[in-house]
Nucleic acid binder design. Sequence first.
DNA 1: TCAATTGCGTTATGCTATAACGTGTGTCAT
DNA 2: ATGACACACGTTATAGCATAACGCAATTGA
Lengths: 135, 135
Amino acid sequence: MTAPALTKNQSLVFDVLSRSDAPLSAYTILDKLRDHGFRAPLQVYRALDKLLERGMVHRLESLNAFVACAHQEKECCGGHGHGTVAFAICESCGHVVEFHDHAVDHRLDDWARERKFKPAKTTIEIRGLCEQCAA
Amino acid sequence: MTAPALTKNQSLVFDVLSRSDAPLSAYTILDKLRDHGFRAPLQVYRALDKLLERGMVHRLESLNAFVACAHQEKECCGGHGHGTVAFAICESCGHVVEFHDHAVDHRLDDWARERKFKPAKTTIEIRGLCEQCAA
DNA sequence: TCAATTGCGTTATGCTATAACGTGTGTCAT
DNA sequence: ATGACACACGTTATAGCATAACGCAATTGA
Ligand SMILES: [Zn+2]
Ligand SMILES: [Zn+2]
Ligand SMILES: [Zn+2]
Ligand SMILES: [Zn+2]
């Protein structure tokens, strides 16, 4: 039941994402890891796949970029085992806020149930300007 | 105030999207329009940009693909002048349903207002299985 | 020990999107 | 008219994102 340890490559990728204060593209991650022996995009993508599976990393579809999950292990909704997560992305400074909203989740869930649509993964991304940048 | 007519290229691209029952990538559109003189991606992307501006076409971020807007001109929320729109995307048959949900919109709006975040564009995409394909 | 699984590294390729250049065509103020 | 401007268009080249296909090594579990 308890997940196996991260491999070396997975740890390296996760570390880079954790330290970043903005989303990173796979190729940016690659560049940051060249000194650690990374040579090809696949090394990054394979690590990202595993981290995404675990919910430790999220993909921002509107940016083709990735962020470390901002949840603590045991937060509401089970931390990394969270349901749908939403993002507010500042187009000026690049800062991203990850959040849940149960009302939104349930509303979309109801919509799906009414139409007998079976959701697998839901993307919610608000792009705009954060408080700092909107001033 | 009334929008200028579509150019030839814009019409061709819009037609292709309108006739399709699934989202199309820019390159797929290009292929479908080679017989009409299209030779390069930019011809498609430039037309798409204008159609997106007008709200006649939507981009599905999680698919890197495009669909014709499913609204009628004068539907609720002003038809093509609509606010946030959401999509349910079947991963099996490719069918896409476009919808509004005011409750979701307002909830996300509230979230943003509370944090003084200024939304510019919001993406909501539910991927899963439609009723037909879930059976 | 033998198979199956998983991760890894490499090369090559494919898909998505834009930069930069020049052309032609209208509009509009001079 | 003529020049200035805006805008659509066409072309070539390039940038950015993602996966296919190969082979090797380590791990696991019958
Ligand atoms: Zn998360
Ligand atoms: Zn900002
Ligand atoms: Zn629409
Ligand atoms: Zn379906």
